[in-house]
Design a protein around this nucleic acid. Structure first.
Lengths: 250, 250
DNA sequence: GGAGAGACGATTGGATGCAATTATGCCTTT
DNA sequence: AAAGGCATAATTGCATCCAATCGTCTCTCC
């Protein structure tokens, strides 16, 4: 017995991460992806056994999710998944619009490093390549949304404003925007099924978004904070308008 | 024994509110008011005995505070109060500026009820009366800040945007803004002591803020959403500029 | 037959107990 | 005497346990 018995003794209290954190991300994922339906009760016992922990970390995680606004809580009656209505989605878009626009403007005020700028360019070019590929598919769409998300996170990070970053992450803003209308079921429930089909060419709104990204990137490269902020604001609000027009067209 | 034995039986499990919620607000208050210094460790056992509960609700509350960004957490090493720097305060002001400005614009878009408008007027007039009182005191200043807070909350509520509301409440934005520079020690630590003295007449920044409120209220009454949004944005950013000029003047 | 009261079961919120990890102090060693 | 190592103490994180509350079902009474 010369070896330390550290590596994997009991496996029970042997976590790299607190169980509360694990449960938190897991349950949040289940809610955001719609695996747990809105309005459903969140029985602590069931979640605990499902995830292989006791109720204590589950209850902690649910408290956090309540603060985040994803679930609601009634004294002695447990937790339920909040039902996110169309109005909430629009509200979240408005909130994100101003936060992200400001982040964009601040990033220019702060100044972009050459590395950041080149990363930004690569994200934009990746999106352009996908749009210009001459074809379209679920795979390409997923990829474009990947570039989209990378573009937006980079801008938000470049603002160096951690408060805005966590404000965007917080509340419903982040979950809802997983990737507008397609990935996030919270949003896609408001989009008619036929509009969710995969066409042969990139849909108009993606072409338009790609152009928006390029315009924003250009404004950033030209150090025009005011323009960059305005372009980013318009970009997000276009998404809101599109969602409204699409949702009412049933 | 004809009376119901409901009112106050054991007092132990007889809460109108979960202990987690109580602990949450209590500890948050302690942190925001500076009663617990930044960087201090938050020993669960001590907090529990101090507040007369067990460690379980305390741990839940600390998890929420971590999500809110007020405390940081290290695995197996407990929780510590996050040290909020000047940069964080400025970041929070930027975030709040755009959120509250948007809320203001949205409130006009949505439309104000006559009751809301009259409440708004009364808050503005209360502030005006205090500023015009011809004297000044700690008491008057507290009152003016009360009217200030009422004014801002009303505008935010009138936006009908619950996401923006909780975004403002969340992260550090709300605590920091308890009442700029005076009430909140998080901010006032950056303000030289001599500037915190109580003068005989209302200080310039309060007179200016009062004027701003009146201008915003006027724009709201005239249904000018764009103007109201811009005025509110400028109002908050003025506070940021003032804080910067005051903090660097040591 | 319907309404209300009461009881049972299920589930919650909180307190306590236990294993593991980290911090602290003392001792040894060079 | 300083540095390192070891043991002890303190504290964390989680599981378990218990009392209180809520929901539901049944039984009774009108």
């Amino acid at each position: 017995m010369t070896r330390k018995s550290k590596p994997a003794a009991h496996d029970r209290h042997q976590r790299a991460e607190p169980a509360t954190t694990t449960v938190l991300t897991q349950v949040r994922e289940l809610i955001v992806t719609g695996a747990i339906a809105p309005g459903a009760r969140l029985a602590a016992e069931k979640i605990a056994t499902d995830l292989g922990v006791s109720r204590t970390p589950v209850r902690s995680a649910l408290a956090v999710l309540t603060a985040e606004g994803l679930v609601s809580h009634s004294m002695n009656r447990g937790y339920t998944v909040k039902d996110i209505g169309f109005r909430d989605v629009l509200d979240a878009i408005d909130a994100r619009a101003v936060l992200e626009a400001k982040a964009c403007g601040l990033s220019v005020d702060y100044g972009w490093s050459v590395e950041e700028l080149s990363t930004l360019r690569s994200h934009v070019e990746r999106g352009r390549a996908i749009v210009d590929a001459g074809r379209w598919s679920e795979e390409l769409e997923r990829e474009w949304y990947g570039a989209n998300r990378a573009f937006h996170s980079l801008v938000i990070r470049a603002s160096r404003n951690t408060i805005i970053r966590s404000a965007i992450r917080m509340t419903l803003i982040h979950p809802i925007f997983g990737d507008i209308a397609r990935i996030s079921p919270v949003v896609s429930q408001y989009v008619p099924r036929r509009l969710r089909a995969i066409p042969d060419a990139p849909p108009d709104h993606i072409v338009e978004s790609q152009q928006d990204h390029e315009a924003v990137a250009a404004a950033i490269e030209q150090d025009d904070a005011v323009l960059a902020e305005k372009l980013m604001l318009d970009h997000t609000l276009k998404g809101k308008k599109r969602l409204i027009s699409v949702a009412t067209r049933r």
